[in-house]
């Protein structure tokens, strides 16, 4: 049976305004939890981008001259592969390097336009067996200055510290956001439950005269959904407002090249916003869904 849109809109808005204070409470909780989650995702995305070449235990990188001869490359390749000190070795060719560059400077498209894959150096990402800084330094030194090698860069203590700090920070934020998301589901649930209690006589009559279960449920479901969506919308709005402050906190990448990836591009942020909006819908639907199935004995 078709449920009339104007009926659902009317019922939902009456319900929302009837318990305005508790409705606001659940909307604001959804907002705060999604805002925190959004911040955690943004920081995490930035740190991952800035340090992506250093992930998975990679301690140093041997960059090859784009103009090196096949023999030169072969010699470096052989030396790395046969070294007993090397645990794992990954070759990044020029096209992959271009991809990395694109993501690192995603918020500076004019820079990307000036670069083509053939000017980027291919590289070997090395995971050594022994990760103490002395051995890493000694090992990387063996390749510095070899024919065909452009440069050898090792992971600095700063990079490791940034990774560790942001890792701890984002885990903490995820946990807090997770707890708040749970709280917001419960709040939505209770708001819907109260709305159903306020309308128990109507519900009784509806059951009596043969309204279908879905006809009775839908206005309450949309009420939950609206709360989730408004909460998510406000969280996204806050993140947009907060973005300039965040960008100001991040150190100037021209002075600290490490941070060049820390400021996410608009396209990447858009992805985060979509995720948040989706989670907002899910929270509202779960909260309302549990409420109507548990407490709307139809």
């Amino acid at each position: 049976m078709a449920i009339k849109v104007d009926y659902v809109v009317r019922e939902t808005s009456t319900n929302l305004f009837r318990n305005l204070s508790i409705t606001l409470a659940s909307i604001l909780t959804v907002m705060v939890s999604l805002f925190l989650l959004g911040m955690a995702l943004t920081v995490n995305l930035g740190v991952n981008k800035a340090t992506q070449r250093w992930q998975g235990g990679i301690e140093f990188i041997v960059f090859i001259n784009p103009g090196a001869t096949t023999e030169q490359v072969g010699a470096v390749d052989k030396a790395l592969r046969e070294s007993p000190e090397v645990e794992k070795l990954t070759y990044v060719d020029q096209n992959q390097a271009m991809e990395e560059f694109r993501s690192l400077f995603a918020n500076q498209p004019e820079l990307i336009d000036t670069v083509t894959p053939d000017i980027l150096p291919p590289s070997y990402r090395v995971v050594p067996l022994n990760k103490s800084s002395d051995t890493v330094e000694a090992l990387s030194e063996q390749y510095r200055g070899k024919p065909g090698v452009k440069s050898v860069v090792s992971a600095t203590e700063t990079i490791k510290l940034v990774q560790k700090l942001s890792g701890t920070l984002t885990v903490f934020m995820y946990v807090v956001a997770g707890v708040l998301l749970g709280a917001s589901i419960l709040l939505v649930l209770n708001t819907i439950r109260m709305a159903m209690y306020a309308r128990r006589r109507e519900i009784e009559v509806m059951k009596l005269v043969g309204a279908t279960n879905w006809f009775i449920r839908v206005p309450f479901m949309t009420e939950g959904l609206v709360q989730g969506v408004i909460g998510a919308g406000l969280a996204i709005g806050l993140l947009v407002l907060f973005r300039p402050f965040y960008e100001r906190i991040v150190p100037d990448p021209t002075q600290f090249p490490l941070f060049s990836g820390m400021v996410p591009a608009s396209s990447e942020l858009f992805g985060i916003y979509v995720v948040l909006a989706f989670i907002g819908c899910v929270i509202g639907t779960i909260g309302a869904g549990v409420a109507v199935t548990r407490f709307l004995d139809v």
Binding site: K4, Y7, E202, V205, M206, V209, T212, F215
Partner: peptide
């Protein structure tokens, strides 16, 4: 009217 409305 409510009785008719809620059964569509």
């Amino acid at each position: 009217a409510f009785a008719l409305e809620v059964i569509g």
